[in-house]
Write a protein that binds this DNA or RNA. Sequence first.
RNA 1: GCUCCCAUCGUCUAGUGGCCUAGGACACCACCCUCUCAAGGUGGCGGCACGGGUUCGAAUCCCGUUGGGAGUGCCA
Length: 474
Amino acid sequence: MTPVTEGPRFRFAPSPTGFFHVGGARTALYNWALAKRLGGKFVLRIEDTDEARNRPEWTQGIIDALAWIGVHSDDPTFEGPYFQSNYAADHVAAAERLFAEGRAYYCDLTPEQIQERSKASGKQGYDGYSRDRDLGPGPGRVLRFRVPEGMTIVDDLVRGRVEFANETIEDFVLLRGNGSPMFLLANVVDDVTMRVSHVVRAEEHLPNTPKQQMLWEALGHRPPVWAHVPVLVNEQRKKLSKRRDKVALEQYRAEGFLADAMVNYLMTLGWAPQGETEIVPWSRIEADFRLEDVNHSPAFFDLKKLAAFNGEYIRAMDVEAFIDACAPWLSGDAVPWRADQFRSDVFRAMAELVQTRIVTLAEVPNLVDFLFLDAPIVDEASWDKTFGNAEARSMLETSIDVLADTPWNAEALKTAVEAAGTTLGLKLGKAQAPVRVAVTGRTIGPPLFEALEILGRDAVLTRLRAAADRLAGS
RNA sequence: GCUCCCAUCGUCUAGUGGCCUAGGACACCACCCUCUCAAGGUGGCGGCACGGGUUCGAAUCCCGUUGGGAGUGCCA
């Protein structure tokens, strides 16, 4: 059953850090789109060799985050996760082979000694001091790769041909003084054993690539296809970092961004689908994405544009889907009403009117809270602005009278308020304001008369009177 | 410092020597629509970093300058 040939094997190799970086998400998506389209595999490898970064729940976080953006571990294209820490013996074995073959050598210089030599000679980095000292392994001795003379040519699918003079590359460390393998080695050995054919990763790894390519060759294998995609940057044009920037995918999810919008937006950073619009379904992306088309320069991760995409996606949902998507934002501790006050039929009635007014799902509660609370949460700025003049006070009084016996439907309510306003010389825009603030607590919100209809006469009149009382008292 | 990468509206991009008087999207501005706020519609602002080549012709090719960025660990 073993196929004679297998499709391309892509890999995504994050190190667990406790959150999932949006840049990592984009890289994963690039790999995923290619693996899917080309009938290959997406191999997930958790690079957990740094003891400090090794917690089981973080791995689950990565798998959950990937699933959220559509990279599902139960898809046949998905393979893994593998854990780098399980392959430590392979890494060491490969290093020892390199030593046996003379392609690596031991060195007993301490970092301080290296620095001193460097300072004395005026040259940067390690100078190859132990190359011909024939040292054997021993505690405190690192194993270094013997960088050959010549030139290393990296053929990169997005950058083209990149040349490195080997003399500019120092004999880098394969095994630490305590015998543990370094990232470069572990990474290559794992890629070899996992038969990775395409390494698609962020541009920051490009300077490492000649070293890795030498390792592939020294290990007797043909290097993979390389592709280094531009990094994501902030407004200062610096690489997105967790210290300065909001980079956690989970956080965007928690703030009410839709996975589809996030995925679509991420894919347009460094790449664009054909045609006049960047809003395209994943099926189009999967069919059209090419590494050769990826831009070469860093892309600014623009929250405003992400928000615009999110708004588009929210509006494109049919109402039922929208209602379902809102559910998590309509209950829980963050919501100002008690669970027993929430009424799904009321929300359902308002849903369509809410849908065009939000950019993230997290904004939903603010637009509908007054429907579930006994009394609205009054925004004082709205209150002061609206009731700062006598007309507004009169309008409030008048509306109490008028609404007491108006037929209770949105259209009739609108007509009634409009008429009441006319008697006071107010246009509808001005006339509805006092009613809106009294009933909803804010100057802005969903269409008022539909909301009044849903709330019902008693609740509306109660609120209008409460507002009048407050005005009388002040 | 050294190595490498990059350079089209403010931002993300289309553009692969003539179709470019450089197209779209986000943002911004104006107008329309309108019960607030949105959404929607129409229009507007705004760019090939600079200098040399190559060519009949250059945003597109070459060189240089300038400006950004990444890497530079016994981190990953």
